[in-house]
Design a protein around this nucleic acid. Structure first.
Length: 897
RNA sequence: GGGGGCGUAGCUCAGCUGGUUAGAGCGCUUGCUCGACAAGCAAGAGGUCACUGGUUCGACUCCAGUCGUCCCCACCA
């Protein structure tokens, strides 16, 4: 057989392995009626993006699920793609063009600019998918999509028109969030609230009749130029007399009324509120209620308008400064109070968002949100971990109409046309030839002019789970793979995206787009900070892959934390998962070195007569089978890190540390028949280990698999299922024997280490059996067990006895349940250390027996606890008592020594 | 203002539906060129599971509160 290199070197095979998978179409999912579908649509990364740790985690989780289901025989589709990320891309490309050519978007013009963005997309759009290949993503690249490709555009237009026709999309003049830097409106989700140090300025508005007037508190005095009235609560006795009267705007001199409205809270501020409908959401509503005008004093460029008089053209914050100074000087500033103001910022550029009255397109949310809420409550949509359902529900229950138009060029253009002749609006799937209202001919350059705006990125991402499968066409893919199985995403994106996919799918296809939302946390830096460009603390996954390999990175990310919680990324710690890969590599290397020259001569396990299997074989087979079952259960519950841990322990602790060691004598021996059996088990178990580990570490497992001379690739193989080893009584008995043997070996090693016995020095041991239970132990420790103990604990001879008289004088001992293991140490014996060890053991056992007997003496316990728990506790107590008696006896024996 | 997470070994974290001798990796100590692996092997030290109550026969686990810490949502002038 071919021999593996001595050291695991992922660079030497990861690329080749991936290319072979891709070349052979191993990621391709077919609409195979004989199989069950398993579908994940990948959250599409922005085309502007580079692969970062968040993607690495997100996509590793998806790849694990996909590979596992594929091995289980599902037709597993993991559909990849990228997002056009309207605003981020537009800003970025515009910046780059400006930096290199000094030209602005407007100078370039819409058509030319879009041409440039598409060019940019062609060059850089594929960068991230190349990086994803390095990670090992087994996605079906043949089905790769882009949120602005033709199919997605069709879906977007169709969805828009349908909603419009149902009256769920409307155009209206409303107060929206405006980012002056990006020059576009934003949805509520795109505004991030942050506490900012600010002030309340208490400003007196003098009464028109010459009285004292009213003092209001405001954090935004620069909006005063657009005040239309002062509002007070109708129940506020302080102001009842003043309702209906008027005050002057200080300095400005404009006269405004005092009105009563339910909005002001007498408890807050002075109880009187200045109302600026055009620049505050609450004021906007007050204005609507009272039919007030909406003067605008801050423009879309965040500069003051003519309404602000001498301040026209000044930046809003600079105006605030100067205006407050002017008010102060004129004696209208009553007092100032420091306060923190929650302030909205643009999620892309962090500019302070300005509430603005503007004509935009909106989606009416109430009717759409309702079934999405019900789906979750009914359990048709399940969040993992469940607590994230709260986030989801809260967002939907509080949702307001969604502003979907953006004053950008890069995106899906709104399918609405305005008639220059009659002023009518036509919303249609294609440019209408003529105005449906007045019949005037449209056409290029005609009377019909398409809306200039594009749609919110999330409008198209919301359709992702089905637009990628062919919707609005009724395709075989859509019928077979929809609804998808699970959506894997970070908790930071639930409201942006998850809720929109859910209501969009329910609206179009009548059901949620996935059964599970599997939510993960953020990958943070070693200090627990968010990784970000500005902090410069991000770690490039590609760098980690270069250093330790993709498998090590994946395993680290999987092992790192519980579902839904954040994890810290510490480069050094990836070493340990790389070391684990190396361990597996070498264990496989060992197996391969010992399989003999002719792999065909190794019988399949099914051809090995059961009687030929030794205890350690049975133990190993049963063990790996039960771990496989447990790990499978964990995977089904999305407990990926638990499954990871179990498989890791099985490989490292059981296979490498014990099984391989137990099997060496047979492999190195002369008995060819025994050797053949051993080889069969060795390969059989290794194959299962590779299968189990493959979803987590796809590269190394596939590479080793290739050396085993098996037909086909591992990626296309099968997930291990029960073959009856784990619940076979003979196997259980063999397992018990091996566990006892392991205990004895550990005990002897312990004694040797503490006595500093030279490793080369072989010592005879005596095992004293309990007269009562000795029979079983004698059987367990007879035969191979003695050989195992000799080989693995540096023992020259194992004697079993029931006779106290056989116990050697100068010996150290260890108590294992009902057994006492004596290791004669002669001059090495240190009775003080021996006593210390025994005292410690006695203390532990005394505590144990006390606890257990107390428990069992408790009537409540014996009355209420389940029978098997009581039985288990009884057995524990008996064992502890037995051991304690032995310790005590032994302690007595070494007392004076 | 509302909601949520976290607090377990020196560090980073597991511990699922209550019954375990409370675990892992790293770090630490000791000893190992023994025919897979020093990216290794063996042995070991190290935790009153933040605190206080409660439920229970039994609490790291469930509930309430306290303290500390992090996060999300939010149109209080």
């Amino acid at each position: 057989m071919k021999e593996l290199a001595k050291t695991y070197d992922p660079k030497s095979f990861e690329k080749r392995i991936y290319e072979n998978w891709e070349k052979d179409g191993d990621f391709r999912a077919l609409t195979d009626p004989a199989k069950k579908p398993f579908t994940i649509v990948m959250p599409p990364p922005n085309i502007t993006g580079q692969l970062h740790m968040g993607h690495a985690l997100d996509e590793t989780l998806q790849d694990v699920l996909t590979r596992w289901r594929r091995l289980q025989g599902y037709s597993a589709l993991w559909l990849p793609g990228t997002d056009h990320a309207s605003i981020a891309t537009e800003v970025r490309v515009a910046d780059e063009i400006f930096a290199s050519e000094g030209k602005t978007k407007d100078e370039l013009g819409r058509e030319e600019f879009l041409k440039r963005v598409w060019q940019w997309k062609e060059i850089y759009g594929g960068r991230i998918t190349e990086q994803q290949r390095r990670l090992g993503n087994s996605c079906d690249w043949g089905r790769e999509r882009f949120t602005m490709d033709e199919g997605c555009n069709k879906a977007v237009v169709e969805f828009f028109v349908r909603l419009y026709e149902k009256g769920l999309i409307y155009k209206g003049s409303r107060l929206i969030n405006w980012c002056p830097a990006c020059g576009t409106s934003l949805s509520d989700a795109e505004v991030e609230h942050e506490d900012v140090d600010g002030k309340y300025w208490y400003i007196r508005y003098p009464a028109a009749d010459g009285g004292e007037g009213v003092t209001v508190a405001t954090s935004r005095p620069e909006t005063m130029f657009a005040d239309v009235c002062i509002a007070v609560s109708p129940d506020d006795a302080r102001y009842t007399d003043m309702v209906g009267k008027t005050v002057f705007l200080p300095i400005i001199g404009r006269e405004i009324p005092i009105i009563a409205d339910s909005y002001p809270d007498p408890e807050k501020g002075t109880g009187a509120v200045k109302i600026t409908p055009a620049h505050d959401p609450n004021d906007f509503e007050v204005g609507e209620r009272h039919g007030l005008p909406q003067p605008v004093c801050i423009g879309f460029d965040a500069k003051m308008t003519a309404e602000a008089g001498v301040y026209e053209g000044l930046d809003r914050f600079e105006c605030r400064k100067q205006w407050v100074a002017a008010l102060d000087e004129a004696g209208f500033l009553v007092k100032t109070e420091d306060v923190v103001i929650p302030t909205g910022h643009c999620y892309r550029c962090a500019t302070v968002v300005e509430p603005m009255v503007s004509e935009q397109w909106f989606v009416r949310m109430e009717a759409l949100a309702k079934p999405a809420i019900e789906a979750a409550k009914r359990g048709d949509l399940k969040h993992v971990p469940a607590r994230f359902e709260k986030t989801y529900l809260h967002w939907l229950e509080e949702i307001r109409d969604w502003c979907i138009s953006r004053q950008l060029w890069w995106g899906h253009r709104i399918p609405a046309w305005y008639c220059g002749a009659c002023g009518g609006v036509a919303v249609a799937r294609e440019r209408p030839d003529a105005c449906p209202a007045c019949g005037v001919r449209g056409g290029e350059g005609g009377a019909l002019r398409q809306d200039e705006d594009v749609l919110d990125t999330w409008f198209s991402s919301g359709l992702w789970p089905f637009s990628t499968l062919g919707w609005p066409e009724d395709t075989p893919d859509l019928r077979y793979f929809f609804p998808t199985s699970v959506l894997v995403t970070g908790y930071d994106i639930i409201f942006f995206w998850v809720v929109r996919m859910v209501f969009s799918a329910i609206e179009t296809l009548g059901e949620p787009p996935f059964e599970y939302v599997f939510v993960h946390g953020l990958v943070r830096d070693g200090l627990g900070r968010k990784m970000s460009k500005s902090l410069g603390n991000g770690v490039d996954p590609i760098e980690v892959i270069e250093a330790y390999g993709a498998d090590a990175l994946r395993f680290f990310l999987l092992n790192g934390s519980a579902a839904g919680s954040d994890m810290r990324f510490i480069m050094k710690n990836v070493e340990s998962t790389r070391n684990f890969a190396n361990k597996l590599w070498n264990a496989s290397r060992f197996a391969l070195m010992n399989l003999g020259d002719d792999s065909a001569a190794i019988p399949p396990l099914s051809a090995v007569p059961r009687a030929e299997l030794r205890d350690e074989d049975r133990w190993m087979l049963a063990k790996s089978e039960s771990v496989a079952a447990a790990a499978t259960e964990n995977l089904e519950k999305f407990e990926l890190s638990v499954a990871t841990q179990k498989i890791h322990d099985l490989i490292r602790d059981e296979y490498c540390d014990w099984y391989i060691e137990l099997v060496k004598p047979r492999l190195y021996g002369e008995d060819e028949e025994a050797k053949a059996v051993c080889r069969a088990v060795l390969v059989y178990v290794l194959s299962d280990l590779l299968r189990l580990l493959h979803p987590f570490m796809p590269f190394i497992t596939e590479e080793i698999w290739g050396y085993l001379g098996k037909p086909g690739k591992l990626i296309c193989d099968v997930w291990p299922t029960a073959r009856g080893f784990a619940d076979d009584a003979d196997f259980a008995a063999a397992s018990a024997k091996i566990e006892m043997t392991k205990d004895v070996i550990r005990a002897v090693r312990n004694i040797r280490a503490e006595a500093n016995a030279a490793p080369a020095r072989k010592l005879p041991i005596l095992i004293k059996l309990d007269p009562k239970t000795g029979g079983a132990a004698r059987a367990a420790l007879g035969g191979d067990a003695a050989a195992h103990i000799k080989g693995l604990a540096g023992v020259s001879d194992v004697r079993l006895t029931a006779d106290e008289a056989d116990v050697p004088e100068e010996s150290a001992s260890a108590i294992i349940g009902g057994l006492v293991v004596y290791v004669p140490l002669d001059e090495l014996i240190d009775f003080a250390a021996e006593r210390e060890r025994l005292e410690k053991e006695r203390a532990r056992l005394e505590g144990e027996t006390l606890r257990l007997s107390g428990k069992l003496a408790n009537g409540g316990f014996t009355a209420k606890a389940p029978a098997q728990v009581i039985e288990a506790e009884r057995a524990k107590l008996a064992a502890a008592e037995e051991a304690l008696a032995k310790v005590a006896a032994r302690l007595l024996a070494v007392k004076g020594k």
